[in-house]
Design a protein around this nucleic acid. Sequence first.
DNA 1: TTAATAAATGCAACAGTGTTGCATAATTAA
DNA 2: TTAATTATGCAACACTGTTGCATTTATTAA
Lengths: 138, 138
Amino acid sequence: MSKQIAINILKQHSQRATFRRIAVLEFLMEQAKAYSLTEMERLLSINIDRATIYRILQIFETEGLVIKMIDLNGTCIYMFNNQNHNDSKKHPHLRCKKCDKIVCLPCLPNEYMDKLDDFEINQIYFLMEGTCKECLSN
Amino acid sequence: MSKQIAINILKQHSQRATFRRIAVLEFLMEQAKAYSLTEMERLLSINIDRATIYRILQIFETEGLVIKMIDLNGTCIYMFNNQNHNDSKKHPHLRCKKCDKIVCLPCLPNEYMDKLDDFEINQIYFLMEGTCKECLSN
DNA sequence: TTAATAAATGCAACAGTGTTGCATAATTAA
DNA sequence: TTAATTATGCAACACTGTTGCATTTATTAA
């Protein structure tokens, strides 16, 4: 049961397992998609305020539970950071504009890393948006 | 004289060379940096409204004179698209958070392009933010 | 050069997202 | 169960993007 998994994750991170935090975490764990505050407020089946989602996601981001990205409209979107997702090595993402699905791309080759050494990088952000195969065929 | 160059560019693109358009284009041509609407409103030495800059940049983007990106705050930033800048082949950019300087990175390797074929990409957006060598040494 | 036409601009207003303070509700610890 | 702590909802605000409309500016025709 994914609800119990969500509770355990919160406990492991020394965070209170409240009704709303469980709901948000469970929602994001369900699929490899990224959502904005507004989308979550609409899609979550519980009553929850935008400010609450905002603060919950801030905590989740600090704890490394979610990855925050910015879509091409400039809106913040959040994705669950599961074990398969290689967060330690930064990499680009593809996002389907229709179904919100996120696909990870390989890490960057060395010719990039050399250039990056010139910078003191504090944030790397790569996002491509398009339409995925499944959505194209529908 | 860069003002005359700006006028010529506007004429080549069949756009009216108004006082404000010349100023905006000249400003962006001066350096390889990217600015937001608000920054331009502040930094331009002329009186100009945010809405006007907004509409001017819309035209410039359509004409391929500027490249629009989104910084890590979700704010749109605009950079002059000069001849050296290989716009036909999409590539990532590095931006210095202190001096706003933009550095182009190489085009993406084939292993990326293969994955991209699965998507019908309508927008590619890569941006990294950090601090450049010069700013680090100051 | 001037008048008529077309387009650009400023102002004001609004929408959407991010963000915060504060009173209240929920959770935890004693 | 009660006291202390924390989470939440509500309201408000800041900032950016965006648009309508009246006015100014630039272009075209005479």
